[in-house]
Amino acid sequence: MTVRNRILVLLAALAVLAGVATAAVLHASARADRRDRPQAGGPTVTSGSVTLTRAGRMVFRNMAWGPHRDELTTVPASDPSGPRTASGVTCLRFHAAAGTGVCLQAVHGPVSDRYRAVILDARLKATAHYDVPGIPSRARVSPSGHFAAWTAFVGGDSYAGTHFSTRTAVVDTRTGKLIPTLESFRIRKDGHAYRAADVNFWGVTFTADDRTFYATLATKGTTYLVRGDLKARTVTTVHTDVECPSLSPDGTRVAYKKRVPGLPKDAPWRLYVLDLRTMRETPLAETRSVDDQAVWKDTHTLVYALPGDYGADLYETSADGTGEPHRISSAAVSPAYVG
Rank of each mutant, 00 (worst) to 15 (best):
F147S: 07
D79L: 15
R54W: 10
D131T: 10
D79I: 13
T74R: 07
W150L: 03
F153M: 04
V111S: 12
S47V: 13
D79M: 12
V118S: 13
G41H: 04
V141F: 03
S158H: 14
R116M: 10
A98Q: 08
L120H: 05
V154E: 04
S158T: 15
T100F: 06
S142W: 01
H108W: 11
G134L: 05
S112I: 11
H68P: 10
H68Q: 13
P136N: 00
P133I: 01
V118P: 09
R93K: 14
A55L: 14
R69C: 13
P43Y: 08
A98L: 06
F94Y: 07
H129K: 13
W65F: 14
P110Q: 13
S158W: 14
R114K: 12
R114W: 11
A117L: 03
F94P: 04
P133E: 11
R123A: 15
G134P: 09
R57P: 08
G82L: 03
H68N: 13
R138M: 13
T90S: 15
P43E: 11
G156R: 00
A152T: 03
S49T: 14
P133F: 08
F153H: 09
V107K: 13
V45M: 02
G145R: 02
P136V: 07
N62V: 05
T74K: 02
P43C: 09
F94G: 02
G145S: 03
E71S: 06
A86E: 04
P67T: 12
L92Q: 13
C91V: 01
P80I: 01
A122C: 12
Y130Q: 08
S81T: 09
G66C: 11
A148G: 07
H108M: 13
C91D: 08
F147C: 00
M63W: 13
V45W: 03
R114T: 14
D70P: 10
L92R: 11
I135R: 12
G109L: 08
G56S: 07
P43M: 12
A96W: 11
A152R: 02
